[in-house]
Nucleic acid binder design. Structure first.
Lengths: 338, 338
DNA sequence: AACGTTTCCGAAAACGTTTCCGGAAATTTT
DNA sequence: AAAATTTCCGGAAACGTTTTCGGAAACGTT
């Protein structure tokens, strides 16, 4: 692939390559007439600066790494779209890596991005991430990093999270207000902040209504459809079904619904259910699932702005945590009372 | 960000940078002992070659561009995973771009990748793509390109497609065998090959059973959930419902189902329905949707291998079209007969 | 021992751009 | 008019690596 180079333009105009470079980089020390002449000739010749050479000279790649735990569930693609929108406008390209919910793959992804000298990384941790120390070492080297959604409190970097506590509280409150007597919470992996906060919201909503709660009502699960299914099958087997379910996310809720329906249990008449994070599936299943809506694209935008600030700032970044709010979409799955 | 360079390693060992380079690139003209000594020292010093400098020297970026029309629907993420798996093993990184089903965004994405000197592009066209001529010009410049799924026959490049005709035929046959008298086909945008082939399969299945078919039974739609919904609302309004629906893809089918249920129409008793491309949603809705399964990850792998062959081949590539097969997953949505 | 071949290393140039510095010309100030 | 300052350009060096070529040393053949 033979491209027009800066040398070709300089030769065509009988000037130096420094002058061509100055024209393209808005330098103060070039005459406006010269600049115009160069830009015009470059356009005619189809020249534009080689980004690879620029990256080498400027020691910046204008690449941003995005590491997500998976991207089949639309949550992460939606966040990525937000990130991309912001960084594309600033002339950056995004390298998207997904970790298949696997800690080792996640580590390889991070290393690959590091080896590619990306200017920064936006990261959401996989379920069973073992990579905190590695990330800590990167942060120590002042490597620009922003965490979103699945974070770890011990990492001193900027973070974008959702108000899991508040909205779990509201969702649980809504379930309590349906007259439910025994609600269980499918928590997701409790090593993660979002899971802890949602569980806390679940617990405190009970406290508000003076309802005693037992630790049996917290069931630690994975985050997938299959995880929800398995729990329900288990609860059926030991004849210990609740009358309400608050699930950590929509896939878990959808899996639970599937198992309930397969066993002839009516939703919401026998068991009411609410999910979290509002996938498109929520509105499509029967009955439509009550779910907390998270502002995914906006989360991506905020994460991108935080990372950009870090990149352009020479001084040591002061970590900033942005907490986003949402909405409770009440649908048929949880409506016991009219 | 100060990195260890090849100069640091050469200095530490009192040898030349050429020798260090030879050690890292498995050159024939370096002594094995020397090579080992260098690799060991590099490991201790934390040195690895700067990929940016490599890209400049070797005139290859080891970046592959992937352009998909959208990535909220899991179909494209699954294909991307297949592509990534193949190229990561070959030392390539993938730049994923998505076009929001917009022709202009798609063109910008292609240009961005071109400007980043990616070694090749794997591309699936957006719904209303107007970029055929631009892509044609890239192909003329011998730019490695592979199309998948949403292709255009006039582009002389390698392609990976699914046997839309055959499986549309089988899905329609299955519907016909349920005793349906009037089946409509929601076609998707008929400018695309996949839509044309699925429509042809639909038509020829009728022909096989000697069933007359009218052009009213082909309804051109978009590809989204909302598109399916709108068509059903329209057909209800003009009191022209069929007893069977063959939809171009699952989102369209799911949208149709949603509108049918909202209007108290029973699936499959009143109207049977089959989709195409087997999203996870198909098995989760009520009733579970009959759908043609496409081998998404495998499609990505095949596309990647085709592109790789093109990249490493110096001679003019001979376009190759690979046609993949699938499976018809029959579920409750289409079962009229036991 | 002399000659030819092979091995393995170092130096220089290349990749395409940006940055820095010096010098010449033009302009302004004294 | 002379001196000081500003403008604007070209050349050289830098970025970090790979590739090419030449030369010295070791080895093999005559």
């Amino acid at each position: 692939m033979k491209h027009v180079t800066i040398k070709d333009v300089a030769k065509a105009l009988n000037c130096s390559i420094s002058t061509v470079s100055r024209a393209f980089n808005n330098k103060y020390d070039i005459h406006p007439d010269t600049r115009e002449k160069i830009l015009k000739m470059a356009l005619e010749m189809g020249y534009s600066p080689n980004p690879i050479a620029r990256k080498l000279t400027q020691q910046k790649t204008y690449n941003i790494g995005i590491v997500v735990p998976e991207f089949i569930n639309p949550f992460f693609p939606e966040v990525i779209i937000g990130i991309q929108d912001v960084f594309l406008k600033k002339g950056y390209q995004t390298l998207i890596m997904q970790s298949n919910e696997d800690s080792n793959t996640e580590l390889e992804n991070i290393k690959t991005l590091e080896n590619n000298f990306v200017d920064g990384i936006i990261l959401s941790l996989s379920q069973k991430s073992q990579n905190i120390e590695y990330i800590q070492a990167l942060i120590k080297k002042n490597y620009p990093i922003v965490l979103f959604n699945r974070i770890n409190d011990s990492l001193p970097v900027s973070k974008v999270v959702f108000d899991d506590y508040k909205w779990a509280f509201f969702a649980t409150e809504h379930l309590i207000q349906q007259g439910l007597k025994k609600i269980i919470h499918l928590t997701g992996p409790m090593q993660h902040n979002f899971a802890k906060n949602r569980a806390k919201g679940f617990e405190d909503a009970h406290r508000k209504y003076g309802i005693k709660i037992s630790h049996e009502q917290f069931i630690e699960t994975g985050l997938l459809i299959e995880d929800g299914e398995q729990i329900i099958e288990h609860l059926i087997k030991i004849k210990n079904l609740p009358d309400g379910i608050f699930a950590v996310n929509d896939p878990t809720a959808l899996g639970a619904m599937r198992a309930l329906k397969r066993n002839g249990i009516k939703i919401p008449q026998d068991i009411a259910i609410a999910g979290f994070s509002e996938t498109p599936m929520a509105a499509l299943v029967d009955p439509p699932l009550t779910s907390v809506l998270q502002p995914t694209t906006h989360m991506g935008e905020v994460a991108a702005e935080l990372l950009y600030e870090q990149i352009i700032s020479d001084s040591l970044a002061i970590p900033n945590t942005v907490v986003l709010s949402g909405k409770l979409n009440i649908r048929e799955s949880s409506k016991r009372l009219k």
